[in-house]
């Protein structure tokens, strides 16, 4: 049975390769699982039932990996101390983020409402579950940053580099993305009402399961952008250039394409959805 439980753990951690603490972690977990298995057997369960109950209550190895990531999370849960003046607070936050960045750490669940984080190096930062209403990220490097279940109402990302960043299940209403680089960025199941994308670079950007109704992409160039299961009611693409844009289950029927230019494939796809393509030029 020890072998069987050992195999179970090996499989559970297989996706993470040979991380440094692996032997130590599996040794301790194996001892816990064995204790549990032995206890269940003592209570009269059959070998199979005891094994099943033991592995079923294991949970998710990802939770452990999150805790073991090379650098431990900075103590982001600690409330931000009010500084004597805004400038100082800003310096402290910037320094904290700089350090966090260098330790490839995460600072999830942080309260950073109205914080000024402009011009900061925040590549690969994890802002999941954070309160960031009205925060400013103007001109910051947020390459690969993660915003899962973050509150970002009115947050500013003007001129920011959000290449490969993801906004999942986040509230980004009134978000300001003017001139931001959104190459390969993903918006999934997020609220984007009133968001501004003027001048943003939209290459390979994905909008999934998000409400884009009423948003404007006027005069913009969209290359390889995907709209999937998103609402496009009155979404405006006036005079925009759409190249290799995909509309999947997004019903662009009520979207506005007046004066837009698009490639044949995009045009054909839109035609199939009965979108109004009058005044559209095929490039």
């Amino acid at each position: 049975m020890e072998q069987k439980l050992h195999t179970f753990l090996e499989q559970a951690f297989a996706p993470y390769g040979n991380f440094p603490a692996r032997a130590e972690v599996t040794k301790e977990l194996l001892s816990n699982l064995q204790d549990k298995y032995t206890d269940l057997k003592r209570q009269g369960l059959s070998d199979d039932d005891a094994y099943r109950a033991t592995v079923e209550s294991f949970g998710d190895a990802a939770e452990i990996m999150e805790q073991l990531s090379p650098a431990q999370p900075v103590k982001a849960e600690r409330p931000v101390q009010p500084a004597a003046d805004g400038g100082t607070l800003r310096q402290i936050m910037k320094e904290a983020f700089r350090q966090a960045k260098h330790s490839s750490s995460r600072f999830a669940s942080t309260d950073l409402r109205q914080t000024d984080l402009s011009d900061s190096d925040l590549a690969a930062a994890d802002f999941s579950f954070s309160a960031l209403q009205g925060a400013t990220f103007d001109a910051s490097d947020l390459t690969g940053a993660v915003f899962t279940a973050a509150a970002l109402t009115g947050a500013r990302f003007e001129e920011a580099n959000l290449a490969g960043a993801s906004f999942i299940a986040s509230d980004v209403q009134e978000g300001r993305f003017a001139n931001a680089n959104l190459t390969d960025a993903t918006f999934k199941a997020s609220a984007l009402k009133g968001a501004n994308f003027t001048g943003a670079a939209l290459r390979g950007t994905t909008f999934m399961e998000s409400d884009l109704s009423g948003l404007s992409f006027d005069n913009q160039t969209l290359t390889g952008v995907t709209f999937e299961r998103s609402s496009l009611k009155r979404t405006s693409f006036k005079n925009a250039k759409l190249m290799d844009v995909t509309f999947r289950h997004s019903d662009p029927k009520e979207a506005v394409f007046e004066g837009a230019t698009m490639d044949k494939v995009t045009y054909a796809m839109l035609k199939n959805t009965k979108a109004d393509l009058s005044g559209v030029t095929i490039a």
Partner: peptide, 18 residues
């Protein structure tokens, strides 16, 4: 309430680190 292994273990590591 069944505390699963993964949740408990990550909690123990966090507490130990702190």
């Amino acid at each position: 309430y069944q505390l699963n292994e993964a949740t408990m273990y990550s909690s123990l590591k966090r507490l130990e680190h702190d």
